[in-house]
Amino acid sequence: MKVILCPDKFKSSLTAEEVCSAMAKGVRTVVPQAEIVRMPLADGGEGTLSVLESNLNAERICVEVSGPLFRPVLAHYLLKGNRAYIEMAEASGLPLLKTFERSAMNTSTYGTGELIAHAIGRGAKEVYVLIGGSATNDGGCGMAEALGVRFLSHGGRNLTAIRGKDLARIKQIDTTALSAYKDITFVVLSDVRNPLTGPNGATHVFAPQKGAGVAEMEHLEKGLLNLTACLGNGLEDQPGAGAAGGLGYGLMSFLGAEIRSGVNTLLHMLNFSEQLDSANLILTGEGKLDHQTMSGKVVAGVIEAVGNRNIPIGIICGMCENLPEIKRELRADWVVQLRDQASGFRDSMTNAARYVQQAAAQIAKEWRSGADN
């Protein structure tokens, strides 16, 4: 019996690697001799770098860069040959700030640009930028500033240490310095498909969790609209332009980046389709299953990759909104919620590994019973 374990992280509870370990323990209590393939996954956002590091023989490079509020932070990226993998949350992520420090008006992606520049300085010719979990809403202008782009206000004055609140003041943009990067290939990995502006854009959907109130959101949206008017490239409506506070748009606009599905790219890198040929059971999962699961998340990516192969699929999650509908849409054989086993939300978070193990054992037992019959 071959079992593939390919979950995402359970946010604020377990890493994808820890979920795999708990699943493996559960399966082995039922089928001790099972061949278990651990394949922790991510969707291109937070945690993707960790997944890549556990699967690639890449060099980890640590460097001090500017955090979201320009305080120094120690971040790292991966370098394998001439390909670099950079997770923007390492330099510009929300977890780097205390709750009271969250401010989409005052944060910047400058540190992400510093990571990109450092990787290119180390010889990278292909740069993968993993975006998600950002503390920012600057349209990628901070990142661009770190790479030499100049932002000018009325009167030709330089805008420096540019943040979300400064975008509305931009009058001209000098991208001359970017000629140094014309031979570098940039790829963005993300699960977010939102456009840059509008009701489904970066500001209205994500800025509130970054500390923005109603008046601040109005100012931030005005800034992003001004940025699009200055650049005039029409990329603001591209799926993913609104990812990471508009960093997706900035990477496309300033560096010609291509946006790809995070989970699909990882599945390809990890040769997932080859592993499926002899698989008997697949266990995947994430912290919460809801309507967003179908839009570029790990579970949906796994099920899409499995396609019409007749392989039973079990999903383990912390909780599921509208379980019957989600189970039907995902075409899953089993969906097990940790909250059905735990005494409450806190218990399900604190003891998630134990409940994931129990859920995996339950699915394996039901699978074996069906196979025997």
Score class of each variant (00 low, 15 high):
Ala177Leu: 08
Glu221Lys: 05
Ala202Asn: 06
Ala243Met: 08
Leu338Gly: 03
Val187Met: 11
Val31Asp: 12
Thr48Gln: 02
Gly223His: 11
Leu267Val: 11
Leu220Tyr: 03
Arg102Glu: 02
Asn322Val: 11
Ser134Arg: 02
Tyr110Pro: 04
Asn106Gly: 12
Leu49Trp: 02
Ile4Cys: 03
Glu325Arg: 14
Ala124Asn: 12
Gln358Arg: 13
Gly111Met: 08
Thr284Gly: 07
Gly148Glu: 01
Gly44His: 01
Ser134Trp: 03
Ala16Cys: 06
Ile259Trp: 09
Gly93Ile: 05
Gly26Phe: 02
Phe206Ile: 05
Ser108Arg: 00
Thr228Lys: 02
Gly213Phe: 07
Val299Ser: 07
Glu46Gln: 13
Ala361Val: 08
Pro199Glu: 12
Trp334Glu: 10
Phe186Lys: 03
His204Ser: 15
Ala279Pro: 07
Glu304Ser: 14
Pro7Cys: 11
Met349Lys: 08
Lys365Thr: 15
Gly123Arg: 02
Ala342Thr: 08
Val27Ala: 11
Ala168Trp: 04
His219Asp: 13
Ile86Thr: 01
Glu286Val: 02
Ser50Trp: 05
Gly250Ala: 10
Arg71Leu: 09
Pro208Gly: 10
Ser103Lys: 00
Phe186Pro: 02
His291Asn: 15
Leu69Thr: 06
Asp340Gln: 10
Ala119Gln: 08
Glu366Lys: 10
His118Asn: 15
Pro32Val: 07
Cys317Gln: 00
Glu274His: 13
Glu64Asn: 08
Glu236Leu: 03
Cys20Ala: 10
Leu283Val: 05
Val192Ile: 15
Ile313Gly: 00
Ala257Met: 13
Asp290Trp: 01
Val188Phe: 08
Pro199Arg: 07
Glu17Ser: 14
Met88Cys: 07
Lys2Met: 11
Val356Leu: 03
Thr112Phe: 07
